[in-house]
């Protein structure tokens, strides 16, 4: 029995295999519409999440399976003081696979240690969110046709953004990916990510505060939201929130015609809505990819393989 807690739990070959299945689901969804018939996914969401939870639920329904669970800790036994281990042992009696989001870092790992069914980490605090990384990888591969030999810019909150850290980690295992880090001084990529991932693997990277200056070089632009909850001062939050706003004008002036713009969503104001109609804006398609890659992952962890 296998779980997915950290993106590095998967080898490059396993990731490529999952993305291949996701591509096949997109090409022929009918083929997969009943493969999880009779199976149940438990969505244990100890903190609210719209996108991830709906994406998991939609994924299971489209595989012909069923879903049970809760969408905030208030409606679970956690309010009565039940441990993650006990909740997991109980849920294993009713479900075939678990997707868990928890505000505490490491909670899905604890669940996997006590579970008799596969556990998928659907986000644990500011720590890991491997299915978002799979989503990002699938979207990039579908847009660029490969996961190597391109330049990707990460823009916005690179300090606290777990999706950025995980995607950098995942991309560091592919060949010839050049990374451009665009952020205000206060929200730069933490030095341990630079040291442990980029420098350790000899990956070429550039740090800058100027988005417009580097925009012409980028094949992929990964925008992120500055999160209000990370700041003590509202003034500081507003100042940094408005550091980078991608507009259609900037795109027209500076960007490559085949640029791929990604965003894990939700956005606040970092991508102007006038960008949405531009063919380079791929963030809603990215959300759709999230469902397909989760379908592929659920199948893999349940041991369902189609020829």
């Amino acid at each position: 029995m296998r779980s997915l807690i950290n993106i590095l739990d998967l080898s490059v070959e396993e990731i490529d295999g999952l993305l291949n299945v996701a591509d096949d689901i997109i090409a022929d969804p009918k083929k997969y519409s009943e493969v999880c018939h009779g199976k149940k996914l438990a969505t244990l969401f100890f903190e609210p999440s719209t996108r991830t939870r709906l994406s998991f639920e939609a994924a299971m329904y489209e595989l012909g399976g069923n879903v049970l669970g809760f969408s905030d800790a208030g409606s679970s036994s956690a309010t009565k003081g039940e441990s993650v281990a006990d909740t997991t042992k109980m849920v294993c009696c009713y479900a075939d696979i678990i997707a868990m989001r928890h505000p505490k870092e490491g909670a899905p790992l604890v669940a996997s240690m006590h579970s008799t069914v596969p556990v998928i980490n659907a986000g644990d605090g500011g720590h890991n969110h491997p299915t978002q990384t799979l989503t990002d990888l699938l979207t990039i591969r579908r847009k660029k046709g490969k996961l190597s030999g391109f330049t990707i810019g990460f823009c916005g909150d690179l300090k606290f953004g777990r999706t950025v850290h995980s995607l950098i980690q995942a991309l560091s295992r592919y060949e010839n990916v050049k990374i451009v880090l665009i952020s205000p001084e206060e929200l730069k990529l933490p030095s341990y990510v630079k040291k442990d991932v980029l420098q350790k693997k000899g990956i070429e990277y550039v740090q800058t505060t100027d988005l417009e200056a580097v925009l012409p070089e980028l094949d992929v632009l990964y925008m992120t939201r500055v999160q209000r909850e990370r700041f003590l001062s509202e003034e500081e939050y507003i100042r940094l929130r408005d550091s980078y706003i991608l507009t259609r004008e900037k795109l027209v002036k500076n960007a490559k015609s085949d640029l791929t713009i990604l965003h894990p969503l939700p956005r606040v104001n970092e991508i102007s809505t006038d960008v949405d109609d531009d063919p380079r804006a791929c963030y809603f398609e990215q959300a759709l990819c999230g469902k397909f890659v989760r379908m592929a992952l659920i199948m893999e962890l349940l041991g369902i393989h189609l020829d």
Partner: peptide, 9 residues
């Protein structure tokens, strides 16, 4: 780490 699961369990 106050956000670690060991801080509450």
């Amino acid at each position: 780490n106050p956000r670690c699961i060991t801080s509450c369990e």
